[in-house]
Design a protein around this nucleic acid. Structure first.
Lengths: 180, 180
DNA sequence: ATGATTTTTTGACCCAGGTCAATGTTTTGC
DNA sequence: GCAAAACATTGACCTGGGTCAAAAAATCAT
């Protein structure tokens, strides 16, 4: 976020003009499955997440965004194909929103914004890679411990249901893990 | 790859100058764990992969590159931190190699190369995302069937050991899956 | 070609984590 | 403030896929 301070005055105005503030309620849905992801979000306060629903009807949480954080349903945002994931709010949340058209216009017009986009992609990639590594190398208990260690805010603030879905375990299992 | 045809003459020369051909033998290692990933590979013929070894000593294959394809140990390439993954050749392989310094010089000097880099990151991200989706929603059998359907060449050309490691199952399990 | 190594298959057994169901406990909406 | 809904815990039981071991088949190196 502080990288914005390196924009020069004119560019900064251009960027700021693209953002709109939005306040959303808990459980409000920003993107549904099948919709095209047309916005990118900066979370000022609160918490949103991306998740999808398996054909067995189970929720799987891909990514949790607690302030200060950024994100969207990225696969659909990039490809402009219908999203297989949802975005919803886990708390009352204040967002800054930029729409996709403006986002990519800035990519073309402002070299630093293109660099910012590249950084987002690099971080998103590394994050997914890390997630795969955890899934294939760690037990449920180890993944839970890793989350407590690396992201204690998430564990403190969110329900077990959400945390279990994020760790790809059942809530019953999480409950049992905690009690030993 | 065909996007290179859109480079104008001068830029194309600049790009071509950065590449060196290299022939590697089966089982040759291009990047080891702990090393920094300093090259990006274009596979002209043959097959290489990235994999890592768990603390239990098991190989996990992240990504298989059969010609024509591109890639590297991307997390380390981006961050210039030591790689947790290896790259090795699964067959005798012909590569075009560009080193990291040249790669990022081209990102700065040639806008189209920056766009190319962005496309790589977008594809890499989508690929990882898809992999997570498969891991958390499909059974071993379903993942195997998906691979046969979407990437039959891989299944035909590589050993069960590699395919099992790619699907995150044991070879014994893969063997049993195939026999029913 | 041929012995040595590596892969593949098969069998017997095990266990982490899922399922289903019942019972608390908290949160929410009015 | 209170009913209803959502969430958390606990128990009994089950199962997909792992483990270990040993034999059969394929591949490799000289």
């Amino acid at each position: 976020m502080q990288m914005f301070s390196t924009f020069d005055g004119k560019d900064l105005d251009k960027v700021v003009d693209c953002f709109k503030a939005r306040l959303i309620k808990k459980n409000e849905i920003l993107v549904s499955e099948g919709e095209i992801s047309k916005e990118f979000y900066f979370i000022n306060s609160g918490c949103i997440r991306t998740y999808f629903i398996t054909k067995q009807g189970h929720e799987k949480t891909r990514y949790l965004m607690i302030e200060p954080s950024i994100g969207t349903a990225l696969t659909s945002f990039i490809s402009q194909k219908p999203s297989f994931e949802f975005i919803d709010a886990l708390e009352k949340t204040e967002l800054l929103v930029i729409n996709r058209k403006d986002f990519y216009r800035l990519v073309d017009e402002i070299p630093q914004w293109k660099n910012f986009y590249l950084k987002i992609m690099e971080m998103a990639y590394s994050f997914q890679n890390r997630k795969i590594e955890s899934l294939v190398t760690l037990s449920a208990k180890e993944r839970y411990n890793q989350l407590i260690k690396e992201n204690p805010k998430v564990v403190q603030r969110l329900s077990n249901k959400i945390i279990a879905s994020y760790l790809d375990i059942k809530q019953e299992t999480l409950s049992r893990l905690k009690s030993k």
